[in-house]
């Protein structure tokens, strides 16, 4: 039993943090919002060069063969900067799925190619128009298409960086890949939403902390007021009790049993609740500034709102936890229990 990250994981996370801190600043957001570009090419190139898009791919497929925990640490940092590019869904969910189903697919040949994925729980797909391949779900089977083989309808999102598309498609016009492990894809997607939620939450708190030290009212910094402090402290508590759940979910997601699914669901619920709580506290602490387009806090609120509903609604995730509680032994000796141990 060891709940600590290893040196390599810490190093990867730091690399991601530095890369994102340099390439995904408020200036970058602003520029991208003005130009309406889907992608910051320099940033994406840097992400690709660092190997993040290859992280979860098996070594046979030219990947790094690392784990969901490693990727979750990157996704957390991506959340911290509200990364516009769909790194989590492409490299964390779609690419590893495609690598299993069609290892020779040309979309896997170039690590800078993004792969989109559509599922009933995530019907609106970010940057589907730019994807080298789109994975599609129907009755538990997987299909793959290129954007020109499907009908893409732009659906605008409240999140300025989510360029969403509805995808209408006909199985006759796309390539069938047969039965696929959609459960694993779903759990990975939900897990990486959760990991991003942690980052979103921490950034919202950090922005409010910084603003509260600057802003003066009644002759002193608003950071001295207890009501302000307590809003932020409560948000931090939510983060502190979401992070270990996300880490444990990441460590166990591949097990694919009732317990691991419940833990992923738990992670997604609490990490995005923390993100919502932190973003709203942050807006409140910023006052009208927080309600203005010019101040960036709203980006975090909006991303949290989107990720809360995508890849399983809160009600769905609660139901998976209920299944774990009511069909498996629970109690203090069951924290790390597995389904097959109780068979």
């Amino acid at each position: 039993m060891d709940f600590t990250l290893n040196d390599e994981q810490r190093m990867f996370a730091e690399t991601a943090q530095t890369l994102f801190a340099d390439t995904c600043t408020p200036d970058h957001w602003r520029k991208q919002m003005e130009t309406g570009d889907a992608r910051d090419d320099a940033r994406w190139q840097a992400i690709v060069e660092t190997g993040f898009t290859l992280l979860l791919l098996p070594e046979e497929a030219g990947g790094l063969g690392l784990t969901e925990l490693d990727f979750a640490l990157i996704a957390e940092r991506a959340g911290y900067v509200a990364l516009p590019e769909p790194l989590a869904e492409s490299a964390g969910v779609a690419a590893p799925m495609l690598a299993v189903l069609a290892p020779d697919h040309e979309a896997l040949a170039d690590p800078s190619t993004t792969i989109a994925i559509q599922h009933p729980s995530a019907p609106y797909v970010a940057d589907a128009d730019l994807a080298g391949a789109i994975l599609l779900y129907k009755d538990g089977e997987a299909y793959v298409a290129t954007p020109d083989q499907v009908a893409l309808t732009r659906e605008s999102s409240i999140d300025p960086f989510r360029r969403l598309f509805r995808i209408d498609w006909d199985p006759a016009n796309v390539t069938s890949l047969g039965k696929a492990d959609w459960d694993l894809a779903f759990d990975r997607a939900a897990l990486f939403c959760a990991a991003q939620g942690l980052g979103l939450a921490q950034r919202a708190v950090d922005m409010a902390v910084a603003y509260a030290q600057e802003r003066q009212q009644f002759g002193k910094a608003i950071s001295t007021y207890q009501a302000v402090k307590h809003h932020l402290a409560s948000a931090q508590v939510a983060i502190e009790f979401a992070r270990p759940v996300v880490m444990a979910a990441a460590a166990d997601v591949a097990r694919q049993d009732v317990q691991s699914r419940a833990r992923v669901s738990h992670a997604k619920l609490v990490a995005l609740e923390a993100a919502d709580k932190a973003a709203r506290a942050s807006i409140q602490v910023h006052g009208a500034m927080g309600y203005s387009w010019e101040v960036d806090v709203h980006l975090f609120l909006k991303r949290a709102l989107a990720l809360t509903q995508a890849w399983g609604t809160p009600a769905f995730h609660r139901s998976r936890i209920a299944t774990r509680i009511f069909t498996q032994p629970i109690g203090p000796d069951q924290t790390f229990a597995r389904e097959n141990e109780n068979a």
Partner: peptide
């Protein structure tokens, strides 16, 4: 009320995971 029953379980688990993390640290 089932949502609260589920929440109580989640909270207890989150606390346990947090403490395992603290103990490891």
């Amino acid at each position: 009320l089932e949502a609260d029953v589920v929440r109580a379980h989640m909270n207890a688990e989150a606390y346990a995971l947090n403490i395992y993390q603290t103990a490891s640290r």
